[in-house]
Design a protein around this nucleic acid. Structure first.
Lengths: 178, 178
DNA sequence: TGATTAGTATATCAATATGATATATTTAGG
DNA sequence: CCTAAATATATCATATTGATATACTAATCA
């Protein structure tokens, strides 16, 4: 599933502009999938060419013109077809963990600080999610919010209990380097 | 931190060819960071140009020539400098979760099957990790293996306990569509 | 009042990365 | 004997990011 397909998915929830689709990615899909304007606008153009969405232009007086996109019947069909496929593997990249791989080359204080910041960041994410999740969520929304909370909390707990392993390697590494 | 930097990091652990660096990504960094030949070979060329690694060619009789890369002093310095920076945010993309967002559009049987497969996949990852982690690990290696196990297990537990939420939306969505 | 920041809305572009493919040979397994 | 996996290089179209440009409004703040 590429960003083009996911734009189509977002449009199943209602008409939207490119700008609004970007906001949806940030608000509802922050946990799951990221997309920048550089991929959203070209996607929308291509989907229009392919007849999977239609576009009407709304000129506003005190704003730039809006292009409002609507999914077509063909678009709905194409989306369902793609989404029924076996999903590809997750793609995950963590500079934080990559850095920790080299804990033995870094000062213990740097490692400690990075872990502190990571824990603070995960806590922020959890509390942001409490705000971001709707008050009367659908079952799926409830599932997604709980998923994020659970995974982030598991990470926090693990970091607290096991950070000493990294901090030990950072200290040992330094000593070995002397 | 980009792939170029991480190649440098891998070379701090010893000389290697592009092929061996790719294997290191697969074996030691599978959890954390991915890289394909299409990014590794160009990285190595650029690092050589910049004088951060040196390269000696070893012609083998019954194999393609090897290009063995060694990190230089300048390379070690450049790596440490980059790795001391505040790590950028994780990048995560999950087609699995993106699909579940649209559970209400899909047959409940499809959703159930996807969840079953996901659980099986995470279990496979956990057991692969038991094999992949060295017998006498360093503290950092122990930390990384434990990290993966913990996060995957948290996901499995969450899925088992909350899959009914998605399965409910899938059933309701279908009914609403009729 | 005046200045600065955030919000609405479009779009492009260089740089980066993926995933597939090509080439060529050896070794291991069934 | 044949096939698949392993060793080793490399390229390329396509996808994606992150930054930047443009242009106007609304809100905040000193």
């Amino acid at each position: 599933m590429d960003i083009r397909t996911l734009c189509l998915g977002i449009l199943t929830m209602g008409d939207a502009t490119g700008y609004e689709i970007k906001k949806t990615f940030e608000e509802k899909l922050d946990l799951i999938f990221h997309a920048s304007y550089g991929s959203i606008y070209p996607s929308l153009n291509k989907l229009t060419e392919e007849g999977l969405v239609s576009c009407r232009e709304l000129s506003q007086e005190k704003r730039p013109d809006k292009k409002i996109y609507t999914i077509t019947a063909a678009g709905r069909y194409a989306f369902l077809e793609k989404v029924m496929n076996k999903p590809a593997a997750d793609r995950f990249r963590s500079e934080f963990l990559a850095t920790l791989m080299f804990a033995h080359l870094l000062p213990a204080s740097t490692i400690s600080q990075m872990i502190d910041e990571r824990i603070a960041d995960r806590e922020r994410k959890i509390s942001d999610m409490a705000t971001g999740c709707p008050e009367r969520p659908t079952d799926t929304e409830q599932f997604m919010c709980g998923y994020g909370r659970t995974v982030y909390q598991a990470e926090i707990d693990y970091l607290i209990e096991n950070r000493h392993l990294l901090e030990a390697d950072a200290l040992l590494g330094r000593r070995a380097a002397e």
